[in-house]
Design a protein around this nucleic acid. Structure first.
Lengths: 318, 318
DNA sequence: TTGTAAGCGTTATCAT
DNA sequence: ATGATAACGCTTACAA
């Protein structure tokens, strides 16, 4: 280290006191002669002293770094998570190391090891692979899961099935008799939808596999089947975007069809469709509150696992 | 440190060799008896040894961390930057600490100090305040600027004025006689536009101040003036979104008006408007190549400052 | 009230 | 070929 950075030893030498005295002043220890304290404070005030984190971490102090483990930066939703985690962590005094696993369990494992080597105080994870979460648990690094529920870990998520339920009920209440589902499968979004809309028919629906090139598949589906329903529930705004693009390209009129997206991103605003909104900010606030408590040892639920599901809300447009 | 992590000393004790021998094996030093090397390697293979970064950094080794200093996570463009920087940095063996200055010079300065304390190897900055960049330079931490040109720093950006030029020429070539500009001001986007479209009239244009609530201001402008031109150049897709929303709300027909956005995000896809695309991936690749060379000391242009401007391209829709 | 010294986990220098 | 040791910058127990 030391990119020409001032150290406590140097300050001590310059001021004719010992390095430990300087440390004590900086850490506000009692029992320092006022004259000495003032002299040291004045000096560091004028000379910008930067305590070295690496030395502190090595000694066993907290690193004040959180690892953010994320799965897919192609999806704006996860980038949005970075936004909130950075902001809220910063307010709590933490820096964040951001890592994208690209849905690869192997990469996720590598990231975890990297975070461990760096001595992060805690990890916020959108997990790919549950086994890796057990691995984190074994290391003892405080962990919270977001965006998913894992029964063995403190998890914070939005109830996706509730989202499906809301969509189904809203569309049925508006009098739609045929409502299709287009989106990821399997997914709790669909489960919630189907449970509340028993008349759902498989032939109306398109089930996307997010690991594959679902956009092409969707186009083929539309070409073969057209749109048979008067309303559709889409598993994401992103999905909605691509559906509407395909319809436009195929010159299929959809002016009388109602769509509901998911995530309430700017996309649904641009497409002017209703969308189910996940309370992301709240989810991240809750998860970081828990995480920091676990880090500082003020977490009281040691023996109980938190599985929190927030309710999404419907944002109606049009 | 040491969350029950294995150390070299422990390994040495367990295997009956000295800690420094373990270090040598791990760092592939020559002159180790094959038998010893194999024994140590076998052990760490079975027991997952994680060298501690803090200790290495303290000793003066590279931290393999880059700081990413960014200005505005409300704008999807900057989140997209996180995506690419994380990915490319990872491929080069670096982790990244992400920080958002929210366009505040004070916060930006704090972030820089934080990065310095953490011993980052280099910084990638979308700067708010040029003075802070000089501050980084003084610390000696390798630095590259992206998204902007600062003549005293290695900078990588897209030529925004070229973007304005492209927009102006495209719209003129299509026969538009009145072309308005709606967007941030001052901005090179506008400069390039105006220089190539001398008939531009101030009363057609709306100049937004990004620090203020420009969306409301825009709505007032539209209410008072309506749309006088047959085509508009918007300074961002985000701006385009809000303009179109306002038009919809005010029930102003814009079906015969042509729009060009900027950034070619999913928004312009959703709005189905043409957009000027910045070669972000290339910009970040170039900047990280330079940064890592500066870090490893293989950078040859020491005495010359790189001010690279890439050309944007127009993505035509409709 | 303050200085001395140990120790955190490494790497590198010096011995042997 | 390998062990002992110093050093990186810090906090803290122990001495004085």
């Amino acid at each position: 280290m030391n990119r020409n950075k001032l150290t406590m030893k140097q300050i001590g030498d310059l001021l004719g006191v010992s390095q430990s005295t300087v440390s004590r002043v900086i850490n506000n220890h009692p029992n320092i002669k006022k004259e000495v304290r003032d002299r040291v404070l004045k000096f560091i005030d004028e000379n910008e002293f930067l305590p070295d984190y690496s030395a502190q971490i090595l000694r066993g102090e907290k690193s004040k770094i959180l690892g953010l483990l994320t799965v897919d930066f192609k999806n704006q939703y996860y980038l949005e998570i970075v936004n909130y985690v950075e902001k809220i962590a910063r307010e709590k005094g933490y820096s964040i190391i951001v890592m994208n696993s690209e849905r690869s369990p192997i990469l996720e494992k590598k990231h975890i090891i990297e975070l461990q080597k760096r001595g992060v105080d805690g990890i916020v994870a959108c997990p790919v692979c549950e086994e890796n979460m057990y691995f984190i648990k074994k290391t003892g690094i405080p962990l919270v899961i977001i965006n998913e529920i894992l029964s063995d870990f403190d998890s914070f998520s939005t109830s996706l099935s509730k989202g499906g339920e809301i969509a189904a009920n809203f569309l049925m209440d508006k009098g739609h008799l045929s409502i299709g589902y287009i989106g990821e499968y399997p997914s709790l979004k669909f489960t919630g939808f189907k449970n509340n809309y028993p008349s759902s028919k498989d032939e109306w629906n398109f089930y996307a596999n997010l690991d594959s090139n679902f956009i092409e598949d969707l186009e083929i589906f539309i070409k073969n089947n057209g749109l048979k329903c008067s309303a559709y529930f889409l598993s994401s705004d992103f999905m909605a975007l691509h559906l509407l693009k395909i319809l436009k390209r195929l010159k299929i009129d959809y002016s009388n069809i109602e769509f509901i997206g998911f995530d309430n991103t700017l996309l649904s605003e641009a497409l002017n469709i209703s969308s189910i909104e996940q309370p992301m900010k709240k989810m991240i606030e809750l998860s970081l509150n828990t995480l920091t408590k676990k880090i500082t040892g003020t977490w009281k639920n040691e023996n109980k696992i938190l599985n929190i599901e927030l309710d999404p809300t419907l944002l109606i447009r049009n």
